[in-house]
């Protein structure tokens, strides 16, 4: 039987961990020992057999089957993927959010009292008065204040975030509008924008 340390050297060789001196010793021995040479060749042959085994491919539906067995996905990931797959809808919803945000911030900014400039309007402590017997020409706009109409307004009246009182003798030739809630206010903005757009076309056609 072959010496144990020679077999040890064979394994070192097969592990690619033999140093040159030992490899020389191994080759030296193999040249003189038929038994060891045969054993060494058998070892190499069995490795070659194992390595030659054909590579197995996973079945085609493998990945789908694995994914089907996974626990349910988190909602936020689903949402993120939906946004990624629907860029136009994402852009649209982003637009809506930003628009609402900017309108709301305008709403919050405009908390101060203001009134449209007409000569014969009287202002007393956030209350605007259209005095009796006076005729105010043009649209009247009051923000964050009260409007009392005792005279006549030749135009539209709009009160934002306030109240308007129309005295029995008072008269308004145009429309009277009170805007108090945020949504009313947004609605008012949209209507005004629409009117302006129409107005542009009107003046152009004129």
């Amino acid at each position: 039987m072959c010496p144990e340390q020679i077999i040890e050297l064979m394994h070192e060789y097969l592990d690619d961990e033999i140093d040159p001196a030992k490899e020389r010793a191994l080759r030296e021995h193999l040249r003189g020992c038929k038994d060891c040479e045969a054993l060494f060749n058998e070892l190499k042959k069995s490795i070659a057999f194992v390595k030659s085994m054909s590579h197995m491919q996973a079945p085609d539906d493998f990945t789908a089957n694995v994914l089907a067995r996974l626990p349910k996905e988190k909602k936020q990931v689903l949402m993120a993927r939906w946004l990624k797959n629907h860029p136009i809808m994402s852009a649209a919803s982003l637009f809506v959010v930003l628009m609402a945000g900017s309108l709301l911030s305008t709403w919050n900014h405009e908390r101060e009292f203001s009134v449209s400039k007409q000569e014969n309007l009287v202002v007393e402590n956030n209350t605007v008065i259209v005095p009796e017997g006076e005729v105010v020409k043009g649209d009247v706009l009051v923000r964050n204040g009260t409007l009392r109409i005792e005279g006549e307004v030749q135009g539209d009246v709009t009160v934002i975030n306030g109240e308007q009182y129309l005295a029995s003798a008072g008269r308004v030739t145009g429309e009277i509008e009170e805007v108090n809630e945020v949504f009313d206010w947004i609605w008012y903005h949209m209507k005004r924008t629409a009117k302006e757009v129409v107005g542009v076309f009107d003046t152009e056609t004129k």
């Binding site: 085994m53 590579h55 197995m56 491919q57 996973a58 079945p59 493998f62 990945t63 694995v66 994914l67 996974l70 996905e73 988190k74 936020q76 990931v77 993927r81």
Partner: peptide, 24 residues
């Protein structure tokens, strides 16, 4: 983060070697 599609890609990369290992 919970993205299962990303895991699908990992499965695609390693499925053959893992399957082969198990088969042998």
């Amino acid at each position: 983060k919970g993205d299962q599609d990303a895991f699908g890609e990992i499965v695609e990369i390693y499925k053959n070697s893992v399957y082969h290992l198990c088969y042998r």
